[in-house]
Design a protein around this nucleic acid. Structure first.
Lengths: 236, 236
DNA sequence: CTATGAAAACTAACATGTTAGTCAACCAGA
DNA sequence: TCTGGTTGACTAACATGTTAGTTTTCATAG
Protein backbone atom coordinates (compact mmCIF):
# COMPACT_ATOMS: atom_id res chain seq x y z
CA UNK A 1 0.00 0.00 0.00
CA UNK A 2 1.37 3.32 -1.11
CA UNK A 3 1.51 6.14 1.46
CA UNK A 4 -0.55 8.29 -0.91
CA UNK A 5 -3.49 5.90 -0.56
CA UNK A 6 -6.26 6.43 1.95
CA UNK A 7 -6.41 4.04 4.88
CA UNK A 8 -9.78 2.40 4.24
CA UNK A 9 -9.70 0.65 7.60
CA UNK A 10 -10.40 4.04 9.16
CA UNK A 11 -13.89 4.11 7.67
CA UNK A 12 -16.52 3.69 10.32
CA UNK A 13 -19.07 0.90 10.13
CA UNK A 14 -21.88 1.93 7.81
CA UNK A 15 -24.53 -0.05 9.72
CA UNK A 16 -24.73 2.94 12.07
CA UNK A 17 -26.32 5.02 9.29
CA UNK A 18 -29.66 4.55 7.58
CA UNK A 19 -30.97 4.96 4.08
CA UNK A 20 -29.77 3.15 0.99
CA UNK A 21 -26.41 1.43 0.92
CA UNK A 22 -25.12 4.10 -1.42
CA UNK A 23 -26.18 6.81 1.05
CA UNK A 24 -24.49 5.02 3.94
CA UNK A 25 -21.26 4.75 1.99
CA UNK A 26 -21.54 8.43 1.06
CA UNK A 27 -21.88 9.43 4.71
CA UNK A 28 -18.96 7.26 5.79
CA UNK A 29 -16.65 8.67 3.12
CA UNK A 30 -17.77 12.25 3.71
CA UNK A 31 -17.17 11.89 7.42
CA UNK A 32 -13.67 10.56 6.82
CA UNK A 33 -12.83 13.40 4.45
CA UNK A 34 -14.27 16.20 6.59
CA UNK A 35 -12.56 14.90 9.73
CA UNK A 36 -9.27 14.78 7.82
CA UNK A 37 -8.80 11.07 8.40
CA UNK A 38 -8.47 11.05 4.63
CA UNK A 39 -5.97 13.74 3.72
CA UNK A 40 -5.98 15.95 0.63
CA UNK A 41 -4.23 14.29 -2.28
CA UNK A 42 -4.69 10.74 -1.06
CA UNK A 43 -6.01 8.28 -3.63
CA UNK A 44 -9.34 6.57 -3.01
CA UNK A 45 -9.37 3.04 -4.41
CA UNK A 46 -12.74 1.40 -4.71
CA UNK A 47 -11.38 -2.05 -3.99
CA UNK A 48 -10.33 -1.48 -0.37
CA UNK A 49 -13.43 0.61 0.30
CA UNK A 50 -15.73 -2.14 -0.98
CA UNK A 51 -13.84 -4.70 1.05
CA UNK A 52 -13.86 -2.74 4.28
CA UNK A 53 -17.54 -1.78 4.04
CA UNK A 54 -18.66 -5.12 2.66
CA UNK A 55 -20.46 -3.75 -0.37
CA UNK A 56 -20.03 -3.91 -4.13
CA UNK A 57 -18.73 -1.20 -6.44
CA UNK A 58 -22.17 0.19 -7.33
CA UNK A 59 -23.00 2.01 -4.09
CA UNK A 60 -19.39 3.13 -3.76
CA UNK A 61 -19.43 4.62 -7.25
CA UNK A 62 -22.66 6.44 -6.54
CA UNK A 63 -21.25 7.82 -3.30
CA UNK A 64 -18.10 9.02 -5.01
CA UNK A 65 -20.17 10.69 -7.73
CA UNK A 66 -21.95 12.73 -5.07
CA UNK A 67 -18.71 13.64 -3.33
CA UNK A 68 -17.28 14.76 -6.67
CA UNK A 69 -20.35 16.90 -7.23
CA UNK A 70 -19.73 18.56 -3.86
CA UNK A 71 -16.08 19.10 -4.66
CA UNK A 72 -14.73 16.92 -1.85
CA UNK A 73 -13.02 14.56 -4.28
CA UNK A 74 -11.54 14.95 -7.74
CA UNK A 75 -12.29 12.20 -10.23
CA UNK A 76 -9.80 11.89 -13.04
CA UNK A 77 -11.71 10.08 -15.81
CA UNK A 78 -10.53 6.55 -16.53
CA UNK A 79 -7.72 7.04 -14.07
CA UNK A 80 -8.42 7.60 -10.40
CA UNK A 81 -10.12 9.44 -7.59
CA UNK A 82 -8.39 11.50 -4.95
CA UNK A 83 -9.34 13.58 -1.95
CA UNK A 84 -9.53 17.21 -3.06
CA UNK A 85 -6.87 19.59 -1.85
CA UNK A 86 -7.86 22.66 0.08
CA UNK A 87 -8.25 25.61 -2.22
CA UNK A 88 -8.37 29.13 -0.87
CA UNK A 89 -10.53 30.13 -3.83
CA UNK A 90 -13.08 27.42 -3.00
CA UNK A 91 -13.07 28.36 0.66
CA UNK A 92 -13.54 32.04 -0.11
CA UNK A 93 -16.40 31.18 -2.44
CA UNK A 94 -17.97 28.85 0.11
CA UNK A 95 -17.77 31.59 2.73
CA UNK A 96 -19.40 34.06 0.37
CA UNK A 97 -22.26 31.69 -0.50
CA UNK A 98 -22.75 30.70 3.10
CA UNK A 99 -22.84 34.33 4.18
CA UNK A 100 -25.39 35.19 1.51
CA UNK A 101 -27.69 32.47 2.84
CA UNK A 102 -27.08 33.25 6.51
CA UNK A 103 -27.77 36.96 6.02
CA UNK A 104 -31.01 36.31 4.17
CA UNK A 105 -32.04 33.83 6.86
CA UNK A 106 -31.30 35.98 9.85
CA UNK A 107 -33.13 38.92 8.31
CA UNK A 108 -36.21 36.83 7.65
CA UNK A 109 -36.15 35.29 11.11
CA UNK A 110 -35.72 38.69 12.76
CA UNK A 111 -38.83 39.86 10.94
CA UNK A 112 -41.05 36.79 11.12
CA UNK A 113 -40.06 34.89 14.27
CA UNK A 114 -42.63 33.72 16.77
CA UNK A 115 -42.13 34.21 20.51
CA UNK A 116 -41.54 30.50 20.90
CA UNK A 117 -38.88 30.51 18.19
CA UNK A 118 -37.11 33.37 19.89
CA UNK A 119 -37.25 31.49 23.18
CA UNK A 120 -35.56 28.50 21.56
CA UNK A 121 -32.82 30.67 20.09
CA UNK A 122 -32.27 32.38 23.40
CA UNK A 123 -32.18 29.06 25.21
CA UNK A 124 -29.45 27.89 22.84
CA UNK A 125 -27.49 31.06 23.55
CA UNK A 126 -27.69 30.51 27.31
CA UNK A 127 -26.50 26.96 26.75
CA UNK A 128 -23.52 28.36 24.88
CA UNK A 129 -22.70 30.64 27.82
CA UNK A 130 -22.79 27.67 30.12
CA UNK A 131 -20.52 25.57 27.94
CA UNK A 132 -17.96 28.35 27.61
CA UNK A 133 -17.92 28.74 31.38
CA UNK A 134 -17.29 25.02 31.69
CA UNK A 135 -14.56 25.17 29.02
CA UNK A 136 -16.42 22.45 27.10
CA UNK A 137 -15.25 23.39 23.60
CA UNK A 138 -16.59 20.31 21.88
CA UNK A 139 -20.00 20.99 23.36
CA UNK A 140 -19.70 24.65 22.41
CA UNK A 141 -18.87 23.75 18.82
CA UNK A 142 -22.02 21.64 18.69
CA UNK A 143 -24.17 24.37 20.23
CA UNK A 144 -22.69 26.86 17.77
CA UNK A 145 -23.67 24.62 14.87
CA UNK A 146 -27.15 24.26 16.33
CA UNK A 147 -27.45 28.03 16.72
CA UNK A 148 -27.02 28.53 13.01
CA UNK A 149 -29.17 25.50 12.23
CA UNK A 150 -32.01 26.92 14.34
CA UNK A 151 -31.94 30.20 12.45
CA UNK A 152 -32.20 28.39 9.15
CA UNK A 153 -34.89 26.08 10.46
CA UNK A 154 -37.01 29.02 11.56
CA UNK A 155 -37.06 30.50 8.07
CA UNK A 156 -39.50 27.70 7.28
CA UNK A 157 -37.42 26.64 4.28
CA UNK A 158 -36.38 23.02 4.82
CA UNK A 159 -33.74 22.80 2.07
CA UNK A 160 -31.90 25.90 3.25
CA UNK A 161 -29.85 24.09 5.86
CA UNK A 162 -28.90 21.41 3.35
CA UNK A 163 -27.88 23.90 0.69
CA UNK A 164 -25.92 26.00 3.17
CA UNK A 165 -24.09 22.93 4.37
CA UNK A 166 -23.35 21.82 0.83
CA UNK A 167 -21.92 25.10 -0.40
CA UNK A 168 -19.62 25.42 2.59
CA UNK A 169 -18.33 21.88 2.96
CA UNK A 170 -14.81 23.03 2.17
CA UNK A 171 -15.10 25.64 4.88
CA UNK A 172 -16.34 23.02 7.34
CA UNK A 173 -13.32 20.89 6.56
CA UNK A 174 -10.96 23.82 6.97
CA UNK A 175 -12.53 24.67 10.34
CA UNK A 176 -11.34 21.28 11.57
CA UNK A 177 -7.82 22.64 11.45
CA UNK A 178 -8.64 25.58 13.71
CA UNK A 179 -7.89 24.89 17.34
CA UNK A 180 -10.51 26.07 19.80
CA UNK A 181 -9.30 28.75 22.20
CA UNK A 182 -10.94 30.35 25.26
CA UNK A 183 -10.53 33.79 23.70
CA UNK A 184 -12.23 32.91 20.45
CA UNK A 185 -15.08 31.11 22.23
CA UNK A 186 -15.82 34.19 24.33
CA UNK A 187 -15.74 36.43 21.26
CA UNK A 188 -18.04 34.08 19.39
CA UNK A 189 -20.45 34.19 22.28
CA UNK A 190 -20.52 38.00 22.20
CA UNK A 191 -21.12 37.96 18.46
CA UNK A 192 -23.98 35.51 18.83
CA UNK A 193 -25.36 37.68 21.61
CA UNK A 194 -25.48 40.66 19.26
CA UNK A 195 -27.38 38.59 16.69
CA UNK A 196 -29.87 37.45 19.29
CA UNK A 197 -30.34 41.00 20.59
CA UNK A 198 -31.22 42.17 17.09
CA UNK A 199 -33.64 39.29 16.63
CA UNK A 200 -35.25 40.13 19.95
CA UNK A 201 -35.73 43.71 18.70
CA UNK A 202 -37.00 42.38 15.34
CA UNK A 203 -34.36 44.58 13.71
CA UNK A 204 -33.47 42.82 10.47
CA UNK A 205 -30.78 45.32 9.49
CA UNK A 206 -29.00 45.07 12.83
CA UNK A 207 -29.29 41.28 12.71
CA UNK A 208 -27.62 41.23 9.30
CA UNK A 209 -24.84 43.54 10.47
CA UNK A 210 -24.23 41.41 13.54
CA UNK A 211 -24.20 38.21 11.51
CA UNK A 212 -21.93 39.73 8.87
CA UNK A 213 -19.51 40.75 11.57
CA UNK A 214 -19.67 37.30 13.14
CA UNK A 215 -19.06 35.42 9.91
CA UNK A 216 -16.33 37.87 8.94
CA UNK A 217 -14.17 36.55 11.76
CA UNK A 218 -13.71 33.15 10.16
CA UNK A 219 -11.95 33.84 6.88
CA UNK A 220 -8.85 35.56 8.31
CA UNK A 221 -8.28 32.66 10.65
CA UNK A 222 -8.47 30.22 7.74
CA UNK A 223 -6.15 32.35 5.61
CA UNK A 224 -3.49 31.83 8.25
CA UNK A 225 -3.71 28.07 7.73
CA UNK A 226 -2.39 28.29 4.20
CA UNK A 227 0.92 29.37 5.74
CA UNK A 228 0.88 26.81 8.56
CA UNK A 229 -0.18 23.79 6.53
CA UNK A 230 0.78 24.48 2.91
CA UNK A 231 0.94 20.76 2.11
CA UNK A 232 -2.85 20.56 2.39
CA UNK A 233 -3.42 23.28 -0.18
CA UNK A 234 -3.78 23.14 -3.91
CA UNK A 235 -1.20 22.28 -6.55
CA UNK A 236 0.84 19.26 -5.58
CA UNK B 1 -48.09 2.70 -23.04
CA UNK B 2 -50.02 4.26 -20.22
CA UNK B 3 -50.91 7.95 -20.52
CA UNK B 4 -49.14 8.57 -17.19
CA UNK B 5 -45.83 7.51 -18.73
CA UNK B 6 -43.37 9.95 -20.22
CA UNK B 7 -42.92 9.88 -23.98
CA UNK B 8 -39.29 8.87 -24.24
CA UNK B 9 -39.24 9.52 -27.96
CA UNK B 10 -39.32 13.22 -27.12
CA UNK B 11 -35.83 13.05 -25.67
CA UNK B 12 -33.34 14.82 -27.86
CA UNK B 13 -30.32 13.03 -29.21
CA UNK B 14 -27.59 12.98 -26.59
CA UNK B 15 -24.78 13.09 -29.11
CA UNK B 16 -25.30 16.86 -29.17
CA UNK B 17 -23.95 17.10 -25.60
CA UNK B 18 -20.49 16.34 -24.32
CA UNK B 19 -19.04 14.82 -21.18
CA UNK B 20 -19.67 11.32 -19.87
CA UNK B 21 -22.62 9.33 -21.08
CA UNK B 22 -24.26 9.75 -17.69
CA UNK B 23 -23.89 13.51 -17.98
CA UNK B 24 -25.39 13.54 -21.45
CA UNK B 25 -28.38 11.53 -20.27
CA UNK B 26 -28.73 13.88 -17.32
CA UNK B 27 -28.83 16.92 -19.60
CA UNK B 28 -31.35 15.32 -21.95
CA UNK B 29 -33.70 14.37 -19.12
CA UNK B 30 -33.33 17.72 -17.37
CA UNK B 31 -34.08 19.55 -20.60
CA UNK B 32 -37.22 17.48 -21.14
CA UNK B 33 -38.43 18.11 -17.59
CA UNK B 34 -37.69 21.83 -17.54
CA UNK B 35 -39.31 22.38 -20.92
CA UNK B 36 -42.39 20.51 -19.69
CA UNK B 37 -42.18 17.90 -22.41
CA UNK B 38 -42.26 15.56 -19.44
CA UNK B 39 -45.18 16.60 -17.27
CA UNK B 40 -45.39 16.46 -13.47
CA UNK B 41 -46.61 13.10 -12.26
CA UNK B 42 -45.54 11.17 -15.34
CA UNK B 43 -43.63 7.98 -14.69
CA UNK B 44 -40.07 7.67 -15.99
CA UNK B 45 -39.26 4.10 -17.00
CA UNK B 46 -35.64 3.28 -17.51
CA UNK B 47 -36.34 0.77 -20.26
CA UNK B 48 -37.71 3.18 -22.86
CA UNK B 49 -35.13 5.82 -21.93
CA UNK B 50 -32.27 3.35 -22.42
CA UNK B 51 -33.76 2.21 -25.71
CA UNK B 52 -34.32 5.72 -27.09
CA UNK B 53 -30.89 7.01 -26.06
CA UNK B 54 -29.07 3.80 -26.91
CA UNK B 55 -27.36 3.37 -23.56
CA UNK B 56 -27.50 0.92 -20.70
CA UNK B 57 -29.16 1.38 -17.32
CA UNK B 58 -26.00 2.57 -15.54
CA UNK B 59 -25.75 6.09 -16.96
CA UNK B 60 -29.53 6.48 -16.80
CA UNK B 61 -29.55 5.54 -13.12
CA UNK B 62 -26.77 8.01 -12.36
CA UNK B 63 -28.62 10.74 -14.23
CA UNK B 64 -31.84 10.04 -12.34
CA UNK B 65 -29.96 10.12 -9.04
CA UNK B 66 -28.78 13.63 -9.83
CA UNK B 67 -32.23 14.76 -10.88
CA UNK B 68 -33.63 13.35 -7.63
CA UNK B 69 -30.99 15.26 -5.71
CA UNK B 70 -32.14 18.44 -7.43
CA UNK B 71 -35.78 17.69 -6.71
CA UNK B 72 -36.84 17.42 -10.34
CA UNK B 73 -37.94 13.80 -9.95
CA UNK B 74 -39.23 11.74 -7.05
CA UNK B 75 -37.79 8.26 -6.67
CA UNK B 76 -40.02 5.84 -4.78
CA UNK B 77 -37.61 3.15 -3.53
CA UNK B 78 -37.99 -0.23 -5.20
CA UNK B 79 -41.02 1.08 -7.01
CA UNK B 80 -40.67 3.85 -9.56
CA UNK B 81 -39.54 7.30 -10.58
CA UNK B 82 -41.82 10.14 -11.55
CA UNK B 83 -41.48 13.72 -12.63
CA UNK B 84 -41.93 15.92 -9.55
CA UNK B 85 -45.08 17.97 -9.26
CA UNK B 86 -44.82 21.70 -8.88
CA UNK B 87 -44.86 22.67 -5.25
CA UNK B 88 -45.51 26.23 -4.19
CA UNK B 89 -43.39 25.64 -1.10
CA UNK B 90 -40.44 24.53 -3.22
CA UNK B 91 -40.87 27.47 -5.57
CA UNK B 92 -41.06 29.95 -2.71
CA UNK B 93 -37.95 28.44 -1.19
CA UNK B 94 -36.14 28.45 -4.51
CA UNK B 95 -37.01 32.10 -4.97
CA UNK B 96 -35.73 32.91 -1.50
CA UNK B 97 -32.45 31.10 -2.05
CA UNK B 98 -31.99 32.60 -5.48
CA UNK B 99 -32.68 36.08 -4.14
CA UNK B 100 -30.17 35.63 -1.33
CA UNK B 101 -27.49 34.77 -3.88
CA UNK B 102 -28.48 37.46 -6.37
CA UNK B 103 -28.48 40.17 -3.71
CA UNK B 104 -25.07 39.18 -2.43
CA UNK B 105 -23.75 39.06 -5.99
CA UNK B 106 -25.10 42.39 -7.14
CA UNK B 107 -23.75 44.10 -4.01
CA UNK B 108 -20.29 42.68 -4.55
CA UNK B 109 -20.28 43.54 -8.23
CA UNK B 110 -21.46 47.09 -7.54
CA UNK B 111 -18.52 47.51 -5.19
CA UNK B 112 -15.78 45.65 -7.04
CA UNK B 113 -16.61 45.88 -10.73
CA UNK B 114 -14.03 46.97 -13.28
CA UNK B 115 -14.86 49.46 -15.99
CA UNK B 116 -14.74 46.71 -18.57
CA UNK B 117 -17.16 44.59 -16.59
CA UNK B 118 -19.57 47.49 -16.34
CA UNK B 119 -19.28 48.02 -20.07
CA UNK B 120 -20.26 44.41 -20.69
CA UNK B 121 -23.26 44.68 -18.38
CA UNK B 122 -24.33 47.88 -20.04
CA UNK B 123 -23.91 46.38 -23.48
CA UNK B 124 -26.19 43.52 -22.47
CA UNK B 125 -28.77 46.03 -21.27
CA UNK B 126 -28.69 47.88 -24.57
CA UNK B 127 -29.15 44.57 -26.36
CA UNK B 128 -32.22 43.96 -24.20
CA UNK B 129 -33.64 47.33 -25.25
CA UNK B 130 -33.14 46.42 -28.85
CA UNK B 131 -34.83 43.05 -28.53
CA UNK B 132 -37.85 44.52 -26.75
CA UNK B 133 -38.21 47.06 -29.54
CA UNK B 134 -38.15 44.23 -32.04
CA UNK B 135 -40.69 42.22 -30.00
CA UNK B 136 -38.19 39.32 -29.97
CA UNK B 137 -39.28 37.75 -26.69
CA UNK B 138 -37.29 34.59 -27.08
CA UNK B 139 -34.15 36.65 -27.63
CA UNK B 140 -35.09 38.87 -24.71
CA UNK B 141 -35.49 35.86 -22.42
CA UNK B 142 -31.99 34.75 -23.38
CA UNK B 143 -30.51 38.21 -22.84
CA UNK B 144 -32.28 38.38 -19.49
CA UNK B 145 -30.69 35.10 -18.44
CA UNK B 146 -27.33 36.37 -19.59
CA UNK B 147 -27.77 39.60 -17.65
CA UNK B 148 -28.05 37.67 -14.39
CA UNK B 149 -25.33 35.28 -15.44
CA UNK B 150 -22.95 38.17 -16.10
CA UNK B 151 -23.53 39.59 -12.64
CA UNK B 152 -22.70 36.25 -11.08
CA UNK B 153 -19.71 35.76 -13.33
CA UNK B 154 -18.28 39.11 -12.29
CA UNK B 155 -18.27 38.18 -8.62
CA UNK B 156 -15.30 36.00 -9.52
CA UNK B 157 -16.94 32.97 -7.90
CA UNK B 158 -17.29 30.29 -10.57
CA UNK B 159 -19.64 27.95 -8.68
CA UNK B 160 -22.10 30.74 -7.89
CA UNK B 161 -23.94 30.49 -11.17
CA UNK B 162 -24.22 26.72 -10.86
CA UNK B 163 -25.51 26.86 -7.31
CA UNK B 164 -27.99 29.61 -8.13
CA UNK B 165 -29.28 27.60 -11.05
CA UNK B 166 -29.56 24.46 -8.96
CA UNK B 167 -31.50 25.99 -6.10
CA UNK B 168 -34.01 27.59 -8.43
CA UNK B 169 -34.61 24.83 -10.95
CA UNK B 170 -38.24 24.57 -9.87
CA UNK B 171 -38.62 28.29 -10.44
CA UNK B 172 -37.05 27.97 -13.88
CA UNK B 173 -39.55 25.26 -14.74
CA UNK B 174 -42.46 27.33 -13.47
CA UNK B 175 -41.31 30.30 -15.54
CA UNK B 176 -41.90 28.19 -18.65
CA UNK B 177 -45.61 28.50 -17.95
CA UNK B 178 -45.52 32.29 -17.94
CA UNK B 179 -46.38 33.78 -21.28
CA UNK B 180 -44.18 36.66 -22.38
CA UNK B 181 -46.05 39.96 -22.77
CA UNK B 182 -44.94 43.32 -24.12
CA UNK B 183 -45.93 45.01 -20.85
CA UNK B 184 -43.86 42.68 -18.67
CA UNK B 185 -40.83 42.89 -20.97
CA UNK B 186 -40.85 46.69 -20.76
CA UNK B 187 -41.16 46.59 -16.99
CA UNK B 188 -38.33 44.08 -16.75
CA UNK B 189 -36.18 46.35 -18.84
CA UNK B 190 -36.83 49.26 -16.48
CA UNK B 191 -36.00 47.12 -13.47
CA UNK B 192 -32.75 45.98 -15.06
CA UNK B 193 -31.98 49.59 -15.89
CA UNK B 194 -32.29 50.53 -12.21
CA UNK B 195 -29.88 47.76 -11.28
CA UNK B 196 -27.37 48.92 -13.88
CA UNK B 197 -27.69 52.54 -12.76
CA UNK B 198 -26.83 51.51 -9.20
CA UNK B 199 -23.87 49.48 -10.41
CA UNK B 200 -22.68 52.42 -12.45
CA UNK B 201 -22.82 54.54 -9.28
CA UNK B 202 -21.11 51.75 -7.31
CA UNK B 203 -24.00 51.98 -4.87
CA UNK B 204 -24.31 48.48 -3.37
CA UNK B 205 -27.37 49.32 -1.29
CA UNK B 206 -29.27 50.78 -4.21
CA UNK B 207 -28.26 47.82 -6.36
CA UNK B 208 -29.67 45.43 -3.78
CA UNK B 209 -32.90 47.38 -3.50
CA UNK B 210 -33.29 47.46 -7.27
CA UNK B 211 -32.57 43.74 -7.56
CA UNK B 212 -34.90 42.91 -4.70
CA UNK B 213 -37.66 44.85 -6.42
CA UNK B 214 -36.94 43.13 -9.73
CA UNK B 215 -36.96 39.62 -8.31
CA UNK B 216 -40.04 40.42 -6.23
CA UNK B 217 -42.09 40.68 -9.41
CA UNK B 218 -41.78 36.99 -10.21
CA UNK B 219 -43.43 35.20 -7.30
CA UNK B 220 -46.89 36.81 -7.59
CA UNK B 221 -47.06 35.85 -11.25
CA UNK B 222 -46.20 32.26 -10.39
CA UNK B 223 -48.74 32.17 -7.57
CA UNK B 224 -51.42 32.85 -10.15
CA UNK B 225 -50.43 29.67 -11.98
CA UNK B 226 -51.54 27.46 -9.11
CA UNK B 227 -55.09 28.59 -9.92
CA UNK B 228 -54.75 28.30 -13.69
CA UNK B 229 -52.99 24.95 -13.83
CA UNK B 230 -53.83 23.13 -10.60
CA UNK B 231 -53.20 19.73 -12.20
CA UNK B 232 -49.48 20.47 -12.30
CA UNK B 233 -49.27 21.17 -8.59
CA UNK B 234 -48.67 18.89 -5.67
CA UNK B 235 -50.87 16.12 -4.30
CA UNK B 236 -52.40 14.13 -7.13
C1' DC C 1 22.80 7.84 -17.85
C1' DT C 2 18.75 9.58 -20.41
C1' DA C 3 15.16 9.40 -23.71
C1' DT C 4 11.59 6.69 -25.85
C1' DG C 5 7.99 3.82 -26.74
C1' DA C 6 5.53 -0.41 -26.33
C1' DA C 7 3.00 -3.15 -23.37
C1' DA C 8 1.22 -4.46 -19.03
C1' DA C 9 -1.47 -3.09 -15.13
C1' DC C 10 -4.81 -0.42 -13.29
C1' DT C 11 -8.85 2.56 -13.31
C1' DA C 12 -13.50 4.78 -14.18
C1' DA C 13 -17.19 4.12 -17.06
C1' DC C 14 -20.39 1.36 -18.97
C1' DA C 15 -23.17 -3.04 -19.63
C1' DT C 16 -25.65 -6.64 -17.76
C1' DG C 17 -27.14 -10.12 -14.35
C1' DT C 18 -29.52 -10.68 -9.67
C1' DT C 19 -32.11 -9.54 -5.53
C1' DA C 20 -35.56 -7.89 -2.85
C1' DG C 21 -39.08 -4.47 -1.97
C1' DT C 22 -43.49 -2.41 -3.72
C1' DC C 23 -47.90 -2.34 -5.59
C1' DA C 24 -51.87 -3.53 -8.11
C1' DA C 25 -54.80 -7.18 -9.62
C1' DC C 26 -57.31 -10.86 -8.26
C1' DC C 27 -59.90 -13.90 -5.50
C1' DA C 28 -62.09 -15.83 -1.39
C1' DG C 29 -65.04 -15.04 2.21
C1' DA C 30 -68.40 -12.20 4.59
C1' DT D 1 -70.52 -4.84 -2.30
C1' DC D 2 -66.80 -4.77 0.59
C1' DT D 3 -62.74 -6.57 3.08
C1' DG D 4 -58.41 -8.79 3.60
C1' DG D 5 -54.92 -11.54 2.10
C1' DT D 6 -52.14 -13.72 -1.63
C1' DT D 7 -49.77 -13.71 -5.75
C1' DG D 8 -47.21 -12.15 -9.52
C1' DA D 9 -45.48 -8.48 -12.32
C1' DC D 10 -42.60 -4.64 -12.11
C1' DT D 11 -39.11 -1.64 -10.20
C1' DA D 12 -34.93 0.42 -7.90
C1' DA D 13 -31.01 -1.14 -5.77
C1' DC D 14 -27.24 -3.88 -5.70
C1' DA D 15 -23.67 -7.18 -7.61
C1' DT D 16 -20.71 -8.41 -11.13
C1' DG D 17 -18.83 -8.73 -15.86
C1' DT D 18 -16.70 -5.92 -19.77
C1' DT D 19 -14.62 -2.05 -22.21
C1' DA D 20 -11.77 1.56 -23.15
C1' DG D 21 -8.73 5.11 -21.63
C1' DT D 22 -4.74 6.38 -18.60
C1' DT D 23 -0.49 5.73 -16.26
C1' DT D 24 3.48 3.27 -14.96
C1' DT D 25 6.94 0.12 -15.88
C1' DC D 26 10.67 -1.53 -18.17
C1' DA D 27 13.41 -2.84 -22.03
C1' DT D 28 15.93 -0.75 -25.59
C1' DA D 29 18.03 2.73 -28.30
C1' DG D 30 20.70 6.89 -28.28
Amino acid sequence: MNTTDIDATRLQDISAFDGSLAHKVYLALQEAILSLQFLPGQVIRKGPVCEKLGVSRSPVSEAIARLANEGLVDVIPQSGTRVAYFSMEDIREGTFLRQALELASVAKVAEDRSEDQFAQINRNLRLQTLLVEDLDYSGFYQADEEFHALLMLFTGYPRLKTVARMVSLQVTRARMLLLPTPGRATETLDEHQAVVDAIRARDADAAQRAMRHHLGQLMPRIEALAETRPELFQSR
